[in-house]
């Protein structure tokens, strides 16, 4: 098993997440795509950790998971707040600030 395959998979997942952020319209789905990007990075970190034979990458992956959980808390709070006032979670509807 060569670890490079995991790096490719991670890059692929990261790209899917990034494209999802750019093309999806629902704020919650956009947010899920960002989480996908973070988890793709976790895969990279763990793979590099194995390649280098040290633990730094695995420790970082744990940190990233905690940070991702905190982001969920804050992000869903913000999305819920705007959903309550607008009855919509589409990122296209939030268009008052421009020019």
């Amino acid at each position: 098993m060569t670890p490079e395959y995991y790096l490719l998979l991670s890059a692929l997942l990261f790209t899917i997440g990034a494209v999802g952020v750019l093309v999806r319209r629902n704020a919650v789905v956009v947010f899920m795509c960002i989480e996908l990007m973070l988890n793709a990075v976790n895969l990279s970190l763990v793979t590099f950790s194995r390649i280098h034979g040290n633990l730094d990458g695995q420790v970082m992956a744990l940190f990233v998971m905690v940070v991702a959980a905190c982001e969920v808390v804050v992000g869903l709070a913000i999305i819920t707040a705007i959903f309550r006032t607008r009855q919509s979670s589409s990122v296209d509807d939030a268009n008052l600030l421009k020019y």
Partner: peptide, 14 residues
Amino acid sequence: SQEAAVKYFLLGAF
């Protein structure tokens, strides 16, 4: 204000 928060959050997390 909420729109600013959503935009800042989504782009910042990205």
